[in-house]
């Protein structure tokens, strides 16, 4: 009986008596990602609700510069690939590779933020506000600033965390596991953008 139960634990859950089969840092990071992801899911569901209820939602291609948003998407996806490469370099002990790939990730994140600042400035200049906008339903501006602002704050904190980890790595006080956790957060930021890009800018 006990052997059968043990077999189930090992086979079905793949972690034996440690069901997550991971260190506490990784389990905590995944817990954070799930809870933070649910927050974004709430925002996007609320956005969908407001948009359907409105019946007169502005046409995104008339409001946004879609080629610029596409470039922002390209940059964020590329920075995710460089971060994944930094994690792989850390695992294989390639110290210079980690620094190089993390620097590229920081540059990508900074360019993304700069483009988002430009987009916000442009739309504010055209009259977009939290409570009103020239294109239609008043909720449009509120959801735009809420969702892209919340995501942008995540990008900003991600860039700062990566910069701190890169400095610590250069000093020799960061571990490969620390780089991996930083990477998990950055990929989550990229993952959220996939949903924001599709739901807010394309659909």
């Amino acid at each position: 009986m006990a052997e059968a139960a043990q077999q189930v634990m090992e086979d079905r859950w793949a972690g034996g008596t440690c069901p997550f089969d991971a260190g506490w840092r990784k389990v905590m990071m995944w817990t954070f990602i799930i809870t933070d992801g649910l927050l974004f899911a709430g925002f996007l569901a609320s956005y969908g609700y407001a948009r359907i209820m409105s019946g007169s939602w502005p046409n995104q291609s008339e409001v946004f510069s879609i080629p610029m948003i596409a470039l922002m998407t390209f940059i964020l996806i590329s920075s995710s690939a460089t971060m994944a490469s930094a994690v792989a370099a850390a695992q294989s002990g390639d110290r210079k590779g980690v620094s190089r790939f993390m620097l590229l990730t920081i540059v990508g994140g900074a360019i993304f933020l700069g483009m988002q600042v430009w987009e916000w400035s442009h739309l504010i200049h055209e009259g977009a506000r939290l409570h009103a906008n020239p294109w239609g339903d008043a909720a449009f501006g509120a959801y735009f600033f809420l969702i892209t602002g919340f995501h942008g704050t995540h990008v900003l904190s991600g860039v700062l965390v990566i910069a701190i980890m890169a400095l610590r790595w250069a000093k020799g006080s960061a571990t490969a596991e620390g780089i991996e956790m930083t990477g998990l957060y950055w990929h989550f930021v990229d993952l959220v953008w996939v949903f924001v890009f599709t739901c807010f800018y394309l659909l």
Binding site: R12, W13, F20, S80, A81, H187
Partner: peptide, 14 residues
């Protein structure tokens, strides 16, 4: 992204 960049496909089922 979740499966490969975040290595989720290599994690435990839990």
């Amino acid at each position: 992204i979740a499966g490969y960049f975040m290595h989720l496909r290599y994690e435990a089922l839990f």
